[in-house]
Design a protein around this nucleic acid. Structure first.
Length: 275
DNA sequence: AGAATAACCTGCGTGC
DNA sequence: TGCACGCAGGTTATTC
């Protein structure tokens, strides 16, 4: 589900509606997500004020004085803002209550996570096992072609696989990996270590561009992605190759091809992406 | 170390 | 209509 643009949109909604409010309670109805949800989250957070909602990779980090709530939406998670009591439905796993306002996590497939770190957001990003060791943020100065080349030197796995791994750059999932490789004219199957510096420079530009445009468009809503305000995005109507198998390439009219890499669908134009 | 594979889940669309 | 099957935005664990 959510890749960087979708998580960023959720983060903005949460920041706007919840920063400065005190956490007054947590309801955990179904703790079985990727890892068990700590049942005593509210106690851990010390009923403190939400100071900041930040994003690192596809993780949402809610900073309190006592520590940080870490949320991942997995494939199917949504976070919704409720301004009055609403009867919980199927897969409404966790509620974070801030007085009369509630942040509700729904996640049918349960690949998401809600974790607690007793550290600040900054320390959590540096030291938490799930977050330490992630690649750089795509909009940071550290992300450039030289960095990519260094991280991918000697790698024989495909460039698409490296993008998805999060070891080089984070936030790029299946949709935006396909889209950025198309826009950079790179065949998704080529060995990561064999891509020239010039082509990596183009890839860096296109990754940033496609992520920015997706944020502008409100993200991609394939099945169930919505913002915390309940609105869906429209980037899925703007994709060049993703989910367009057999349809004409928007640039050259060659039929878009679909292959499978690492058990994930890859879409590309065999004419525009020759190597 | 790096690469490949299975696994974790539910829901939806398709085709018989 | 009902049912089997394949597929879905992500990540981790286990192999070799």
């Amino acid at each position: 589900m959510p890749e960087l643009p979708e998580v960023e949109i959720v983060r903005r909604g949460v920041a706007r509606a919840f920063e400065g409010l005190a956490l007054t309670g947590v309801s955990v109805r179904q703790p079985q997500l990727r890892w068990p949800v700590p049942a005593n989250l509210a106690l851990l957070a010390g009923n403190g004020v939400l100071r900041e909602a930040r994003r690192r990779s596809k993780y949402l980090l809610l900073g309190f004085d006592a520590g940080t709530i870490i949320i991942h939406l997995g494939m199917s998670g949504t976070l919704r803002r409720l301004d009055r009591p609403v009867e919980p439905g199927l897969h409404d796993h966790v509620d974070l209550h801030f007085g009369s306002r509630t942040l509700r996590l729904n996640d049918p497939r349960r690949f998401g996570a809600v974790l607690w770190s007793g550290q600040s957001i900054d320390a959590t990003i540096r030291e938490h096992p799930r977050l330490a060791g992630l690649g750089v943020e795509p909009f940071s100065d550290a992300f450039d072609a030289g960095w990519m080349r260094n991280r991918m030197r000697g790698r024989r796995g495909s460039i698409k696989q490296m993008l998805l791994s999060g070891q080089v750059v984070v936030g790029v999932g299946n949709i935006y990996a396909c889209e950025s490789l198309f826009r950079a004219g790179i065949r998704p199957t080529v060995a990561a270590g064999s891509v020239s510096l010039a082509r990596l420079e183009r890839l860096v530009r296109e990754i940033r561009a496609v992520l920015s445009e997706a944020i502008e468009a409100g993200g991609s809503s394939l099945k169930n992605f919505v913002s915390s305000e309940g609105t869906g995005g429209c980037f899925q109507t703007l994709t060049q190759v993703y989910d367009r198998e057999g349809l004409p390439c928007r640039a050259c009219a060659t039929p878009v091809r679909r292959i499978v890499q690492q058990q994930r669908a890859t879409y590309f134009c065999p004419n525009c992406q020759r190597r």
